Simulated scan of single mutants.
Amino acid sequence: MGRVEGKVAFITGAARGQGRSHALRLAQEGADIIAVDICDQMDTVPFPMATPEDLTETVKLVESLDRRIVSRQADVRDLAALEGVVAEGIAELGRLDIVCANAGIASMQACWEFSERQWQDVLDVNLTGVWKTVKAAIPPMIQQGTGGSIILTSSMAGLFGFPNIGAYNSAKHGVTGLMRTLAVELAPHSIRCNSLHPGVVNTDMVHNPAFYELAGVPGATRAEAELAFTSLNALPVSQVEAVDISNVVLWLASEESRYVTGTTQVIDAGATAPFKVPHT
């Protein structure tokens, strides 16, 4: 029997990257999935975003594991759309137990150089979109009366400051505060809430020219960028894999973490450790 057998998980940003990985890891352990992604390009985002074909691939991969999935193209900035997806998913799959508020974007500028729209888009997706995700999911979870687990994707940038991603930093710090508030408010309903704080993760959001420039290696090849990323981490690795984050999602979604709430789960290869270990 899987570790989340019979449960249903609602995942945003599920078309690729960490979101797809979370869907597959939970499905491997018995969960059915409600998957959403905008599957469109926002013009303030300096890297290619997911496509409808990416979401279709997530569906195929989940179904190949003999699990059910309800997938919809939806924007986390649209509360009515999220509420509709949640209602449709529950109607088809029968329940809702796990929420992974994972969708996120980034723009790269010094704080004072952001346009108003760049700033607002990042805040709207990465913070308000997380709030809208849980706002859509919490009432039916409370009504269901069987508890649950809400997992909010923050970042190591939700714990420390990093230059030239001020909107992202601000939103991810906000997600950390939202998580702590929800953990207290939802405890009487046996709904737990925790946040994830990944470091550099091997996804399309990282491996693109805009992120390489941010990391101080403009025009780098992937191999050159990965070498530079290694210098960020205490462990002698360039990045973590999406499944490393998904394994923590699985633990937080399972009964193994039944008394874990209000915590910040850091998966960053030691990037935020107080002292760095020299690589030899």
Rank of each mutant, 00 (worst) to 15 (best):
residue 75 D to S: 06
residue 4 V to R: 09
residue 228 A to I: 06
residue 21 S to T: 07
residue 39 C to F: 02
residue 38 I to A: 15
residue 14 A to F: 08
residue 140 P to W: 08
residue 48 P to E: 13
residue 166 G to E: 01
residue 130 V to H: 11
residue 48 P to Y: 03
residue 164 N to S: 13
residue 128 T to E: 11
residue 116 E to N: 03
residue 59 V to F: 01
residue 132 K to I: 03
residue 82 L to I: 15
residue 56 T to M: 08
residue 106 A to W: 00
residue 149 S to Y: 03
residue 79 L to C: 15
residue 47 F to Q: 05
residue 192 R to M: 06
residue 246 S to M: 13
residue 243 V to C: 07
residue 201 V to S: 15
residue 190 S to E: 14
residue 71 S to M: 06
residue 220 A to D: 00
residue 191 I to P: 02
residue 224 E to Y: 03
residue 163 P to C: 06
residue 58 T to Q: 06
residue 220 A to H: 00
residue 30 G to P: 08
residue 184 V to K: 14
residue 37 D to K: 09
residue 78 D to M: 12
residue 179 M to T: 13
residue 51 T to D: 01
residue 175 V to E: 01
residue 176 T to C: 05
residue 140 P to L: 09
residue 28 Q to V: 08
residue 157 A to R: 12
residue 268 D to G: 11
residue 30 G to M: 12
residue 252 L to W: 05
residue 50 A to T: 11
residue 260 V to T: 15
residue 144 Q to Y: 10
residue 252 L to Q: 03
residue 116 E to P: 00
residue 65 L to Y: 02
residue 43 D to N: 06
residue 124 D to Y: 07
residue 146 T to M: 04
residue 236 P to I: 01
residue 125 V to S: 13
residue 238 S to K: 05
residue 44 T to E: 12
residue 13 G to F: 07
residue 235 L to K: 07
residue 52 P to F: 01
residue 180 R to G: 03
residue 83 E to I: 13
residue 59 V to C: 03
residue 218 P to E: 00
residue 193 C to A: 14
residue 176 T to P: 04
residue 53 E to H: 06
residue 192 R to G: 14
residue 150 I to D: 04
residue 226 E to V: 07
residue 132 K to S: 04
residue 23 A to S: 12
residue 127 L to P: 07
residue 105 I to R: 08
residue 14 A to G: 05
residue 152 L to H: 02
residue 256 E to H: 13
residue 34 I to E: 10
residue 10 F to G: 07
residue 169 N to L: 06
